[in-house]
C-alpha cells in the first residue's frame, strides 16, 4: 500500500470527538474490520467485556433453568405464592431501574467531563443499589427466620441460589462503583479510566436486565400460581 493512499484518507468520525475519549489513538483510521490496524482500545475493551457479560448471562441461565425445573418441589414446605411479598419486590425493582438510569446519567457526565455531576450521578447509582441490596437481605433474613431457608426444599435452594447470585453481583458492582468514583476523583477523565467506566456501566445495565427476568419469571409468576 502506497503512502498517498493513507494521507488521502478521511477520519471516520470527527477527530475532536474521537480524541475526547480514546486519546491517544494508536490507529486513528482503524475501522476494526482489518483496515488501518486494530480497533481502538475502547472498542476492544468494551467488546471483550461484552463477551464476558454474555457468558455471565449464560451462567445465570443455568440457575434460571434449575429454578424452573425445581420450583414445584417444595417438599411439603411453603410455596412461592405463600412466601413472596410483591410490595418488597416492586420497591427493589424501582431502586434498580432508577439506579440503572442514574448510571446512564453518569455516562453522559463522564462524556461531558463534569466531575461534580459524575460523582453525584454515581452516588445516586450507588445509594439506590445499596437500598436494593438491603431490601433483598431483609427479605432473605425474613425467609430464613420463618423456616424457609435454602435448606428447606429444592424450590428454596434454587431460589436462594438464583436470587443470591444476582445479589452477589450487585454487591460486587457496588465495590467496583466505589473504586470508579475514587478513580475519577483522583485521576480525572483519563482514557483508561473512561474505558473502565464503560465496562462498569455495561455490567450495571446487564444486572438490571437479569433482574427483569428475576422479578417477572420468579416473583410475579411464583406469586400468581
Amino acid at each position: 500500500m502506497s503512502t498517498p493512499a493513507i494521507t488521502l484518507r478521511l477520519p471516520v468520525t470527527s477527530p475532536a470527538v474521537k480524541q475526547a475519549i480514546t486519546a491517544p489513538l494508536e490507529h486513528p483510521d482503524a475501522t476494526g474490520h482489518g483496515e488501518a490496524g486494530p480497533a481502538s482500545k475502547r472498542v476492544v475493551a468494551g467488546f471483550g467485556f461484552w463477551v464476558f457479560l454474555i457468558s455471565d448471562i449464560v451462567m445465570f441461565s443455568a440457575f434460571f433453568a434449575t429454578y424452573a425445573v425445581l420450583r414445584g418441589n417444595t417438599a411439603g414446605g411453603p410455596t412461592a405464592a405463600q412466601l413472596f411479598d410483591l410490595n418488597n419486590v416492586g420497591l427493589e425493582t424501582a431502586c434498580l431501574l432508577l439506579s440503572s438510569f442514574f448510571c446512564g446519567m453518569a455516562s453522559l457526565a463522564v462524556e461531558a467531563r463534569k466531575q461534580a455531576l459524575t460523582q453525584l450521578a454515581l452516588l445516586g447509582t450507588g445509594v439506590l443499589g445499596l437500598i436494593f441490596l438491603v431490601l433483598e437481605m431483609r427479605e432473605f433474613a425474613g425467609l430464613v427466620a420463618q423456616g424457609a431457608g435454602p435448606s428447606r426444599s429444592a424450590f428454596l435452594s434454587s431460589f436462594f441460589a438464583l436470587v443470591g447470585c444476582h445479589g452477589a453481583h450487585v454487591a460486587a458492582g457496588l465495590l467496583w462503583l466505589g473504586t470508579m468514583m475514587a478513580q475519577f476523583y483522583a485521576k480525572g477523565f483519563r482514557a483508561d479510566i473512561s474505558r473502565r467506566y464503560l465496562c462498569f456501566s455495561l455490567f450495571w445495565h446487564a444486572l438490571d436486565i437479569i433482574w427483569v427476568a428475576i422479578f417477572s419469571l420468579v416473583y410475579l409468576i411464583g406469586a400468581h400460581t
Binding site: 475501522t31 467485556f49 455495561l202
Partner: peptide
C-alpha cells in the same frame, strides 16, 4: 468503525 457496546458518544 465499530462501536463499543454501551457507548453512543460516536
Amino acid at each position: 468503525s465499530d462501536v463499543a457496546p454501551g457507548s453512543n458518544y460516536e
